[in-house]
Design a protein around this nucleic acid. Structure first.
Lengths: 276, 276
DNA sequence: CCAAAAATGAAATTTTACTACTTGATGTCT
DNA sequence: AGACATCAAGTAGTAAAATTTCATTTTTGG
């Protein structure tokens, strides 16, 4: 959160920058005080403070307080440190696991800003779901399909460009396309998103928030790929994607209520019967 | 904070206890919502909620929100708590992510007791690798294949019983079979492991250490499935499996040295060239 | 079974967050 | 250069949320 404020600093107007600096310097005070006090401390007016909140991607001053508090108390540990060729096996293994834990912890710290409710609204009313992913994201897509059909929802995985485009072309209103791409750079995905949207389908993107794909989506679940820098570090953001989809599936199951839990129960019990 | 609420529970009046319980069950919702909403959720009036705040030592409802957010994002709260049908979406989402983080943290704490070096020895000398998994583990197997072929190692994924058995029957010395099964209870896996071992192949099991399959393997990487108890909790141990395989892949890449890093570099750069 | 005390919620009050409009500054185009 | 457009920032008003007051209900000890 603090980092994202720092990043958007240059885009802010002068009074807003004053607010940003004060918030960065006094995050705890910013979280605890009222709008009026904060505005006074920053030497500006209340609307400016609110405009600042919106500019850095928050919906309200209240949300600023929550996000700031989160940022203050989330552990800075599990820091990302790169694997280097002269690491011992156990060093490397530890670093890999730490990176994975770190990816999840980071995602957890952003939870309150993600549009889970809106996403679940979409899914619960969908005629069918399609999870699209290429390469490593293809595995995530297949995994997601596996998770969601257990709720009794028609769904499929699309794991190559041609299939994705063809599917997008044949969507209709009520269909929901979930696009998984760490980079968000594949032009096919952008085309597919546009086409599906033209057909009235819902578009949910799980991707880099700064990518073109993110802009095309109805709903964006940000999932940044932070690891292109290092050769040995694997795809820990893929774990974050998976965990995110887990969370959505559980949320959806809750929203569906008894209908979903009955399906889940059956899908678990048939395995237990066979293998007990 | 949550603990201190729990402690003062007996001192509260009935309506206040209702509030306390709801707050303990839905801390995230309690932090994010307004007083009116919280009061309604607890089936009580707004003044009661405020009296509850005062009684547990807080000065205002706002302070409750802050304290609760703090408590939520502090590392101690990654404990595993089950999702229940009356959880709000954001509570459920948090619980799911906590369970996933918890699974990885637990695995990290066991790292030093796992036979990574022996595993990597096996893999580095293998003629080919085969990752076998059924159901959810099938996705992990495919994902693993994707990871390891980037090192230039011949490998394949086996994702149904028949294929696994057939592959096992045709193995020869130098082949390595990696069996992924959360329960370790599929009899086909045990048969496959025996047959492959008779043929002189290496058997690595990533499974429940108390299972039959674990006993058949040359090398065991324990990965317990702790979550059959609860309907809504998804497969966070699957994340642990994936992270484990990530770690092995990185360890293997380091052991292989320049040969592997050159392959990795190429496999990354061909994607970057296409999409930049 | 009654009185006293405690608990609780409805309604009023105060405080806080947010919006709509206005002013003033900055630049830029003919 | 001057009129026009654009944008930042503030004033004042409004909606909403938190808090207090007070009347009503419930509980409890004699």
């Amino acid at each position: 959160m603090l980092q994202s404020i720092r990043e958007s600093l240059p885009d802010l107007s002068r009074a807003e920058q004053r607010v940003a600096r004060w918030v960065l310097d006094h995050p705890r005070a910013a979280a605890g005080n009222t709008l009026a006090v904060v505005a006074a401390e920053c030497g500006t007016s209340e609307p400016t403070v609110i405009r600042f909140c919106r500019r850095v991607g928050l919906s309200s001053f209240r949300e600023l307080a929550i996000r700031l508090t989160e940022a203050m108390s989330s552990p800075a540990s599990y820091a990302h440190s790169n694997v280097t060729p002269d690491d011992s096996t156990s060093d490397a293994v530890t670093k890999v696991l730490d990176a994975s834990i770190g990816a999840l912890v980071e995602m957890r710290s952003q939870l309150s800003s993600l549009p889970f409710d809106a996403t679940i609204d979409r899914l619960v009313n969908a005629r069918q779901l399609a999870f699209a992913g290429i390469g490593a994201s293809g595995h995530v897509a297949r995994d997601a399909t596996h998770k969601f059909f257990r709720l009794g929802i028609p769904c499929c995985a699309l794991t190559d460009s041609a299939t994705i485009l063809q599917f997008a072309a044949t969507t209709e209103p009520g269909d929901t396309l979930i696009l998984l791409s760490l980079s968000g750079r594949w032009p096919e995905f952008v085309r597919a998103a546009r086409r599906a949207r033209d057909n009235g389908a819902g578009i949910i993107a799980i991707t880099d928030p700064s990518s073109q794909l993110a802009k095309e989506a109805d709903l964006l679940l940000p999932c940044r790929n932070a690891e292109d820098t290092n050769l040995y570090t694997p795809m820990s953001s893929r774990l974050a994607q998976l965990a995110l989809l887990d969370a959505i599936q559980v949320g959806l199951a809750l929203r569906m209520g008894e209908r979903a839990s009955e399906k889940l129960r059956r899908s678990k019990s048939i395995l237990l019967d066979d293998t007990a």
